[in-house]
Design a protein around this nucleic acid. Structure first.
Ligand code: FAD
Length: 668
DNA sequence: ATCAGAGTTGATAAT
DNA sequence: AATTATCAACTCTGA
């Protein structure tokens, strides 16, 4: 904000408000910043990047969600000032803004800060571009309650890996400000002009569309929104132009700011419920009734709220997708919930037990920020390789790299059994009804309860499948409405015991766990209708039902519904063994052996030797030399395992010490 | 230095 | 039925 560009110093500012993570008009600090500049004119733009639409696996549900949220926002702008709408410019941000800065006579560009890796790089480039064109760029806090870099300063700029750490750091910052209302008027709308033929050129650089059916996606034909006609339009792309057939959108969660605010208000009206909300007591088997009663465009097969006695608290808030696209301001969420809790406390009623952080809803919003901070401070957060927080574990179906450390696409297949498990998990065909119901719920609706995500993530990775969490995260990326790079990778590392959490011996059972929450198997009956006539007794293990019962239920296992893809007990035991070996090896994403690609071999050697530090009998050289625990037990000082030490060579001491992979191994 | 205790949310058997 | 102990066990914090 320092100096106004010379060319514009005489006149009022001409301001672009670039929407990205803030599809709303209520409590938008960036919109307020733009308006407060008292501009001569204001442009509201969204940049529709072919890379997102074609180069990234995005399910139909999320694409629909963002487009319809944009459409609603545009309408909201128009109803505040009839001259306004959201202009959607087709092209890459750099190309679009470069031309705009040259041709629109812009003085300022304002946006809401997005700290995720992709956005950070993009915005750094746009900052440079703006400076080059004498345009003032104003990034404004609004997607998080606390400034991420400021908070991290109070954590020695290290990733926040526990809630306590994060809270301690946050305690140094001012509490989140109160929300601001939507503007009642807007400055005059800026005139939108485009280059001849738009921003996209047929130079052969158009990304190939990974969402086409022939690429394993859902889209039947190539999108038309970047065609000759489409690319010169400035309206919100129609669903048809991105290949969406309205009637095929299965998600039950309607997009947009209005729905989000209504839902938040309705939930917060029940102050006792908000005050008593405790995440671990919310049910993974409950689907909120309003999302059950009508699909957006067709009559759903799903009807009726799932209720059972164990799930008295109901589900969670189901607002994550609105936070993700900024249809709902996190400050509004935070303060509404806080107010409800305060009001309930003040009323001094008996009945509901008031919950506290981090189990309560305020704690949930803080977890969101903990992951956002962790992502910001951790290069390669979405990968194992190069990720200093992430343990190296010898997962199946890992991301493969060439000798230059470049990811190989498409990923070379792993052994057939592992690929089968991954495929079955992805498509809800594992033969474990609880897992399959949840995965089908995800595919259909774009949302799954947190504990459901725990179940399926644990199953795929450390519990039974021993498949890389990166594969699971990819599937979530494609299918979740609320997909977020920080929350998704962070939670996957948590569940796979790769970071944040380490008690790998606590494993969710796809049988006992749902029995606790949904003894009558309602979620399964809803999402795996072929199983709907099984008796409760067999609903989570239909393969154990006698053939007569299977026949009576019109569902013979192996014919109508698959056999279990793996044996629970033996898979779990082998996972536990391998996890122990990986923990003993103590490699991280930034360990030299991981970077040079030799880590897998190291762990394979350990696995062959079949020994872990805790194993009793001798005969293994590894037992003597590798285990931290056994060293401790013998009272010996901690020692680096021989494999890692060999790889690190003499450079070990020069590696940055804030790398836990090194720090933990440092001789003390 | 050492050790108990906590950590967003496990399963199972025994009481 | 619902609570409690045990299982086998990781990592960090703080007394
Ligand atoms: C393997 C796995 C992957 C996940 N991937 C994502 C993801 O891509 N995007 C995403 O938003 N959440 C993700 N989560 C976190 C969590 O499951 C969802 O945020 C939550 O279920 C959303 O439902 P809700 O709005 O009803 O949550 P509520 O319990 O009502 O919480 C309110 C809000 O707090 C935030 N929040 C709550 N829990 C978490 C959490 N553990 N991590 C981060 N934010 C949280 C969300 O924004 C949520 O909307 C993932 C969890 C797991 C286990």
């Amino acid at each position: 904000m320092s100096k106004l560009p010379e060319k514009s110093s005489q006149k009022k500012p001409r301001v672009i408000h670039w929407y990205r993570t803030d599809l709303r008009v209520h409590d938008s600090p960036s919109l307020k910043t733009a308006i407060d500049l008292d501009p001569e004119c204001l442009w509201s733009i969204w940049i529709w990047d072919p890379t997102y639409v074609q180069g990234h696996r995005v399910g139909m549900n999320r694409l629909h969600f963002v487009l319809e949220s944009m459409r609603e926002l545009s309408g909201s702008l128009t109803s505040i000032d009839s001259g306004h709408k959201l202009s959607v410019l087709r092209g890459s941000p750099e190309k679009v803004l470069d031309w705009i800065f040259k041709n629109w006579d812009v003085t300022h560009i304002v946006w809401e800060i997005d700290t995720s890796a992709y956005a950070r790089n993009r915005d750094a480039a746009i900052m440079d571009l703006a400076q080059k064109h004498n345009v003032t760029a104003l990034p404004v806090l609004g997607h998080t309650l606390y400034s991420v870099p400021l908070l991290l300063k109070h954590n020695a700029n290290k990733p926040t890996t526990t809630m306590q750490q994060w809270m301690k750091a946050a305690s140094h910052l001012p509490s989140p400000e109160f929300p601001i209302p939507a503007p009642t008027e807007l400055p005059p709308a800026g005139k939108v002009i485009l280059p001849e033929g738009g921003f996209i050129h047929d130079d052969g650089t158009e990304p190939k569309d990974v969402n086409l059916q022939e690429q394993g996606g859902w889209r039947r034909e190539r999108v038309s929104c970047f065609d000759k006609e489409g690319r010169t339009a400035t309206d919100i792309p129609s669903l048809e132009s991105v290949g969406i057939v309205k009637e095929e959108v299965q998600s039950l969660i309607p997009p947009g700011e209005r729905v989000a605010l209504d839902r938040l208000a309705r939930l917060c009206k029940d102050k006792a419920w908000v005050a008593a909300f405790a995440k671990p007591q919310s049910s993974p088997a409950v689907v909120p009734s309003e999302f059950m009663e009508g699909a957006m465009y067709k009559n759903p097969s799903q009807k009726g709220e799932i209720k059972n006695t164990k799930a008295a608290g109901g589900s969670t808030f189901v607002l994550s997708m609105f936070l993700k696209f900024g249809c709902l301001s996190v400050r509004t969420f935070y303060h509404s919930a806080k107010q409800a809790i305060e009001d309930y406390k003040a009323a001094n009623l008996t009945g509901a037990v008031v919950q506290s952080e981090p189990e309560n809803i305020i704690g949930q919003l803080k977890f969101r920020e903990m992951y956002i901070c962790a992502e910001y401070a951790t290069p390669n957060f979405s990968r194992i390789r190069g990720n200093k927080l992430c343990r190296y574990i010898s997962w199946k179906c890992p991301t493969r790299y060439d000798e230059n450390g470049v990811e190989i696409h498409p990923r070379p297949k792993d052994d057939e059994d592992a690929e089968k498990i991954l495929y079955a998990w992805t498509h809800g065909q594992t033969g474990f009804p609880w897992i399959d119901a949840l995965m089908r719920q995800l595919r259909q609706t774009g949302w799954m309860h947190h504990l459901g995500r725990h179940s399926v993530a644990c199953f795929l990775t450390r519990g039974q499948g021993y498949i890389s969490w990166e594969r699971g995260a990819e599937v979530f990326d494609e299918l979740l409405l609320d997909w977020d790079p920080a929350a998704n990778s962070g939670n996957w590392m948590w569940l796979s015991c790769s970071a944040f959490y380490s008690m790998y011996y606590r494993v969710y059972s796809p049988v006992s766990f749902p029995q606790k929450w949904d003894p009558t198997g309602q979620l399964v009956r809803l999402y795996c209708p072929e199983l709907k006539d099984f008796p409760d007794k067999y609903i989570y293990e239909p393969h154990k039902a006698p053939l007569s019962i299977q026949q009576k239920a019109n569902c013979v296992i192996g014919v109508t519904y698959p056999h279990p893809i793996l044996d629970l007990k033996t898979s779990q035991a082998s996972c536990q063994r391998l996890m122990k070996q990986a923990y003993d090896a103590n490699l991280y994403g930034t360990s030299p052996a991981v970077l040079d690609g030799s880590a897998q071999d190291l762990l394979d050697i350990r696995a062959k030797a079949g020994k872990t530090a805790a194993d009793g009998d001798g005969g293994s050289t590894f037992k003597e030399e590798s285990g931290v625990k056994s060293d401790k037990a013998k009272g010996a000082p901690k020692r680096m395992n021989p494999f890692e030490r060999a790889k690190m060579g003499s450079t070990a001491s020069t590696v940055k010490t804030n790398d836990p992979a090194v720090k933990r191994k440092k001789l003390s």
